[in-house]
């Protein structure tokens, strides 16, 4: 679940936070609205004051895609400072721990910051912390990263074990180059006798790269049995095998 506007965020917080937590967030939002600098001290305290449960009661707390109460609380504080958000997020990010950075990144689509926060997104994608990578790849980044940067980010997700199917808007940004990179990745996994995450196939199948797919099919006839088996396992999750057989 990705909250798309401030009203949605507030209603999610009201459903999940304690009365004390809601009161703190309302009062602190008013305080930072009057004095934006006060957010420096309030931002680290959000998890303690509002909580850290997932907004969706059924979400896995370890899933980096799941929005939590502290993400929502931090986003609402940033929304509350209005036009000054652009001036505050740089320092909040620079001195932020992983959760505070996550809060800044998740808030970006709701803030009047234009393209100015793209460097923060790129910084987060360079890390190896899956929480930060996912938080960075929200609608803000999907809209603004260029094709090459987005393809690298998606490949990195697959590489570090982050699911790409929940990334909002990815389908419209898929490119032949992204499909080619994921196909090469799939081939590399098969050659290493490993499993391929099933969710790479919808991206590959959108712009099927001929040469790379031939290379993957050739693994089905590889002299090493383990590689043949890895190819069979991987292709079972794709439509490629079926459509090829249909064409023969």
């Amino acid at each position: 679940m990705i909250p798309h506007d401030t009203g949605h965020l507030w209603s999610s917080v009201r459903e999940r936070a304690s009365a004390d937590g809601i009161r703190w967030l309302k009062e602190t939002s008013e305080a930072v609205n009057l004095n934006p600098g006060a957010i420096a001290a309030a931002f680290p305290a959000v998890g303690r004051e509002v909580g850290r449960m997932t907004l969706d009661p059924l979400a896995d707390p370890d899933d980096p895609h799941a929005w939590r109460l502290d993400d929502a609380g931090r986003a609402l504080l940033l929304v509350a400072i209005g036009d000054r958000a652009g001036e505050e997020i740089g320092e909040l990010y620079r001195h932020g721990d992983a959760n505070e950075r996550r809060g800044v990144l998740r808030a970006l689509p709701l803030l009047p910051v234009g393209d100015s926060a793209v460097p923060l997104v790129k910084d987060a994608i360079r890390t190896n912390d899956t929480n930060l990578i996912v938080a960075a790849l929200g609608p803000y980044a999907i809209e603004r990263l260029d094709d090459a940067a987005l393809a690298q980010a998606v490949l990195k997700c697959v590489f570090v074990g982050v699911r790409i199917s929940p990334l909002d808007g990815l389908e419209d940004r898929t490119t032949p180059e992204m499909a080619r990179m994921l196909a090469d990745y799939a081939h590399e996994r098969i050659a290493a006798e490993r499993d391929v995450p099933a969710e790479v196939w919808p991206v590959i199948e959108r712009f099927p790269p001929e040469e790379e797919i031939e290379a993957i099919f050739s693994e089905l006839d590889h002299p090493i049995a383990a590689r043949r088996h890895a190819a069979e396992r991987a292709l079972r999750d794709s439509h490629l095998l079926r459509s090829r057989d249909a064409n023969i």
Partner: peptide, 14 residues
Amino acid sequence: FVDYFNGLLGWERF
């Protein structure tokens, strides 16, 4: 020190 503290609070916790 900023980078070190951020590392203690970020990467090392992860």
